[in-house]
Design a protein around this nucleic acid. Structure first.
Lengths: 244, 244
DNA sequence: ATAATCTAGTTCTCTATAGAACTATATCGT
DNA sequence: ACGATATAGTTCTATAGAGAACTAGATTAT
């Protein structure tokens, strides 16, 4: 499947620009196109598939946007280094995260209750002490080994412990309620393990732990969740991709 | 300055779509447009400024891309929550980072020498033991207080310690040499302080430290730098913005 | 030999238009 | 009262082109 002989189905309901984008993305992912390779020009694509130049342009723009290619005016379009391309920083659940690392996630619910918001949450999310949040403390395991302890505080959503146990995924429950997480801020720091946390993670008190605290909001900026997590530092590292 | 009475200068060399984009961005940044507000439709913009709908669309797409607005087919275009909008994860120097936090950065160069690559770098960057890297160890201070220790290994670039001391910024030296960092991967973990590092940061051995290791590459995927850093966990936290 | 100019090829900006797909509301029929 | 249908308004997809801006190499002039 050469670059000017891709599978573009004009009768498909999938937009043409999107088909083109996907096909090129594939060629890059599979290595048939290598970093530094020159892509055909807008004109060549346009003629080869009898599609408008602007339609080609739309596919190209999105590929640039996703980091697959870069373009230089007057010179051409080039395949970028493949390293990043897909994995950017996303709001991700523990389960998704573990699956990305080829580990099997599981969890034990330790606490499931209604509470007033912690101080930190009141300040950041503009809540008062009369508000009620759903608090869930879960021990997180990867391949049956405890790696972290999550304390999640949810705002504006209620469900039963049973529903969480059957659905497994908190994020799916939120989605079913029509709540879409749109953005978040995560703070990462190193702390010494308190006694109770150390015990749960099988560590000595004072061992270094990776602590992350995260606030998440929906599209309109409504506060949805706060999570404070502690991770076994030998078993869990945080990796982020940086750009430009 | 109302939303349909913006400053669009058709004789300016600045592209029209870009002017429109900037003007709307301003309205959002200054708060004249609030999260949830509805923007005029493509049609309205098009007529109000006598520009083609497709030109309006380009401005809108980029605003969506930058997180300022979101669009719903059949419904309209809405201003997004302003929290993120600009600060994404970027390749940033320590100096830039500190300035963003309104602290005054400084540093002391402790080591400046040529070395073969550390094992980890050989593996990740495909170098051999005969390659020579420039190694720089610097103590990093914010408002004259030591917060971190940086060990930087540079590939394919040489300069003198003097030049670094006068220029102050490593990234500026790279830029002057025509080297553009395009992407990087940073790993964050918690470790216990070794004796030497603890002493430099004014801590007890065994204290929890935030350790980050980072690889950076240029546009073509050529390895440029490796940095391993240790931070005083009370004085330095890592914050990242998450999307979607 | 060197410098200036031309030329072909590329991306970028912009125009003008059309219909499809989807949403929300109003109208109509039962 | 309720459900089906129409209608207007929105974004999304796609077309067909033109000239500007820029690059790299070839050609020409000095």
């Amino acid at each position: 499947m050469s670059i000017l002989n891709l599978n573009i189905d004009r009768s498909s309901p999938v937009p043409i620009y999107y088909q083109l984008k996907q096909e090129i993305e594939n060629l890059i992912e599979t290595g048939e196109l290598s970093p530094g390779d020159t892509l055909p020009s807008e004109n060549e694509f346009s003629k080869a598939y009898s599609i408008s130049p602007m339609t080609v342009r739309q596919a190209m723009s999105e590929l640039v946007n996703d980091g697959y290619i870069h373009r230089e005016r007057g010179r051409g379009t080039f395949v970028s280094s493949r390293r990043l391309a897909h994995t950017l920083d996303r709001l991700m659940s523990f389960s998704e995260d573990m699956q990305n690392r080829d580990l099997t996630p599981s969890s034990q619910i330790l606490i499931f209750e209604e509470t007033p918001p912690p101080m930190k949450v009141m300040r950041h999310a503009n809540l008062s002490s009369s508000d009620r949040l759903l608090r869930i403390r879960r021990l997180r395991l990867a391949d049956d080994q405890p790696v972290g302890l999550h304390d999640t505080y949810l705002h504006g959503v209620t469900f039963s412990q049973e529903e969480l146990e059957t659905t497994q995924s908190l994020y799916r429950i939120l989605e079913n309620r029509g709540i879409q997480l749109a953005e978040g801020v995560k703070t990462i720091e190193a702390v010494a393990a308190e006694e109770d946390v150390a015990a749960l993670l099988g560590l000595q008190p004072g061992s270094p732990l990776l602590q992350t605290t995260q606030f998440s909001w929906d599209h309109m900026g409504n506060f949805v969740e706060f999570v404070i997590a502690h991770y076994h530092s030998d078993l869990y590292q945080y990796t982020i991709q940086l750009r430009r």
